[in-house]
Simulated scan of single mutants.
Amino acid sequence: MNADRNLITITSRPDPVFVEGQGSWLVDEDGKRYLDLVQGWAVNSLGHSPALIAEALQAQAARLLNPGPAYYNRPMLDLAARLTELSCFDRVFLCSSGAEANEGAVKLARRWGSKRRGGAHEVVSFEHSFHGRTMAMMSASGKPGWSEIYPPMPAGFSKKARLNDIGSVERAIGPDTAAVMIELVQGEAGVNIADPGFVRELSALTTERQVLLIADEVQTGIGRCGHAFAHELYDVEPDVMTLAKGIGGGVPLAALLCKERFNCFEPGDQGGTYCGNPLMAAVGLAVVNEVCRDGFLATVRQRAQRLAEGMQSLVREHGLIGERGVGLLRALVLPDDRAAQVVEAARGLEPTGLLLNAPRPNLLRLMPALTISEAEIDEALRLLDLALR
């Protein structure tokens, strides 16, 4: 198949061309159905093509698309107000992608460092972290090999600490450090979870050293971990937080949030043509209002428990290493490097395929819609069992 003959090569895609999606299901051009446990890499928090998003898009598109970022619009203001109401933060900058939000967080940290810390500008991040695909965020990420793709890389991100090792953070922080940036769950690295004690120590350390604590919740925020934000599980308050993926439910939307004392941009320091556009903000408001309800989040936690227990059964039955995760962001660890083969086998199942992700050679990542039903979880586990066999 030569479906990508007109596309710049960025990845190896399988043959199916998807034409329709509803809830937890995708359909390709041949009419085959797939139970989707990838959901755009944790983007479709309400599943494929939810009526709520279609209605929000239609209503806002008929009123106002984009007056420009130099003017207020009502959805921008309403979404910012809702996010501050839900969180410990006071200020919001809306943008389009997780990389853009994370880059904004670094800009904020450096602006704050120049004003309050004598020019501090370095950002400490973590080994195996993933913060996006802009040049700066690739440099900030701890993904092996990324520093060799586009040399020379942007400076200021050379110090990488180790997750759950507070001593490595202490050694990495220096007089030029403006911030520490952390994913509380390293999704791309294989759903590596920060230890609660480590996160509390990290919060205390950054406060003591007077550097910002930036929580990259691009993948974990807006219900993915069973709470509005993953840092709630740790009982800490970051100074800065970034959101993307699930906040838009499938449309390009992201957010940078900070506490009032770090609101240090001056007019012209930050911006973007589509920042805070009402079309995406209206969708984000609808998604956030739906997901961040107590009843909805309680159901996410229940579904997560059912999925985790089912995966633990597969671990025992197939002699796997184990499963781990938080909420509906989970990983299955295999005893060998056959994750890619399992992904291919699952996709090729007949008559119904299963879509999985293999971020590591020995690991499968599951990121189902937050609306997945108990019956769909059971079917996913059945199909995963077949693929493993």
Score class of each variant (00 low, 15 high):
E237Q: 13
L86E: 02
A109I: 10
A281I: 11
G322Y: 13
I149S: 05
A298L: 10
G248C: 06
W25A: 05
A80N: 09
L381N: 08
A281M: 12
Q312Y: 02
R306Y: 04
A155H: 11
R303V: 07
Q22C: 05
P278M: 07
L386Q: 15
A281Q: 05
R5M: 15
L46Y: 10
I193D: 00
Q302L: 14
D4V: 06
L314A: 14
A172K: 04
S114T: 11
R338M: 05
I173E: 01
M1P: 02
K143H: 15
L388D: 01
C95V: 02
T242G: 01
P267H: 14
A70Y: 10
C264L: 08
R316N: 12
F157C: 06
L320K: 02
A172L: 03
E20R: 11
Y234H: 02
E20H: 11
E201V: 07
D385F: 05
L94Q: 07
D4S: 05
N2C: 06
V106N: 05
L388Y: 06
A189D: 03
V169K: 14
I8F: 14
F198S: 04
V283Q: 04
A189Q: 09
S147T: 08
L279R: 07
L354K: 02
P252Q: 02
A178K: 09
F18W: 12
A136K: 08
R209Q: 14
G250I: 08
V315M: 05
A369E: 01
G325Q: 07
S139K: 01
A346E: 01
A81N: 15
L233M: 09
T134I: 00
A228C: 13
V185W: 03
S49L: 07
A51N: 14
G249M: 06
D385R: 11
V218E: 00
I173K: 09
F93K: 00
Y72V: 10
E183D: 15
V211D: 03
N263G: 05
G353K: 11
Y234D: 01
E376T: 13
R330P: 00
T11I: 15
G223A: 14
R365H: 11
P196S: 09
L83V: 07
F126Y: 11
Q39C: 12
F126V: 01
T352D: 03
R162A: 14
R303G: 03
N192M: 15
C258F: 10
T9G: 10
L285F: 06
T207C: 12
A345N: 06
Y150A: 12
P75G: 13
G249H: 10
R116L: 07
A59Q: 14
P368A: 08
C264A: 08
A105C: 10
P16K: 13
V185Y: 01
V333S: 09
A281D: 05
I10D: 11
S147V: 04
A140D: 03
A189Y: 09
R360K: 15
A61G: 14
E201G: 07
R382N: 01
I53W: 07
I222Q: 05
